[in-house]
């Protein structure tokens, strides 16, 4: 009975969404904001990757918020888990030599790849979030493959997440203080298009985000792994 009602209600909601979607022609560019990004993004931000120019420049404030959300979830998880003390040791089988060696071998390249992704965020697809996630997956690999051998350094991760966030905010505030007085303004010279040292503050922010996201996601994994 309850299920039936639920399904009927969901069908009504789906009907609502569909009627809305019908008014949007698929694939046709109607968004003038998007057009603006495509046409002027290169000149205004100096980033070759338009997505990055949107994420770190046009809508940098959202990104700051999202970084905070991620930060929050790590902190929140920590706060909740800190109060529940039901740690029990479980018997775990040690990983085989091949597996652990393989993991250890893969760890540096994955880290390197993540770093590459966020350093080149303004040039190639990807950026701080993706790079950070990749770095976190490297840690995940270590946790899975080499059980309990290498743990995330707590102090180190705290440093990188705090400094990452702070760097973002401080760059924003510098933008407010100098030049045209706008928060998160791209106050640095845009440089030569399509080179590593271009696009003003974008690479700096992306590096900060990369460190921060990497540290936070790894921390979440660390917290959960430690508990289980």
């Amino acid at each position: 009975m309850r299920k039936c009602i639920g399904i009927i209600l969901l069908i009504i909601i789906a009907w609502g969404i569909l009627t809305s979607l019908q008014t949007m022609p698929f694939g046709v560019s109607r968004a003038k904001v998007a057009n603006h990004y495509i046409n002027n993004g290169k000149d205004e931000t100096g980033a070759a990757n338009i997505v990055t120019s949107v994420v770190i420049n046009y809508r940098a404030f959202d990104t700051l918020g999202e970084v905070t959300v991620l930060f929050l979830s790590a902190i929140g998880l920590g706060a909740v888990l800190a109060t529940i003390k039901t740690r029990e040791k479980r018997d775990t089988e040690k990983a085989s030599l091949i597996l652990s060696t393989g993991c250890r071998f893969l760890f540096p390249p994955i880290i390197l790849f993540g770093a590459y992704i966020f350093i080149h965020g303004h040039l190639t697809p990807g950026g701080g979030f993706q790079g950070g996630a990749i770095i976190a997956s490297a840690f995940l690999l270590m946790y899975l493959g080499c059980h309990g051998e290498k743990r995330l350094n707590d102090r180190c991760s705290t440093f990188s997440e705090s400094l990452g966030g702070l760097a973002f905010v401080i760059i924003g505030l510098i933008g407010l203080a100098v030049g045209t007085h706008y928060f998160l303004n791209n106050f640095m010279p845009l440089g030569k298009f399509n080179t590593l040292l271009s696009a003003g503050v974008i690479p700096i922010i992306y590096i900060a985000i990369g460190f921060k996201v990497g540290a936070e996601l790894s921390k979440i994994i660390d917290l959960l792994m430690e508990e289980s």
Binding site: R2, I5, G6, I8, L9, L10, I12, I13, W15, G16, T19
Partner: peptide, 16 residues
């Protein structure tokens, strides 16, 4: 959750 979905569905159907 049923309340929430009911509310939404009611409003949608009332309008559409």
């Amino acid at each position: 959750i049923i309340y929430i979905i009911l509310f939404l569905a009611l409003l949608i159907s009332a309008q559409l």
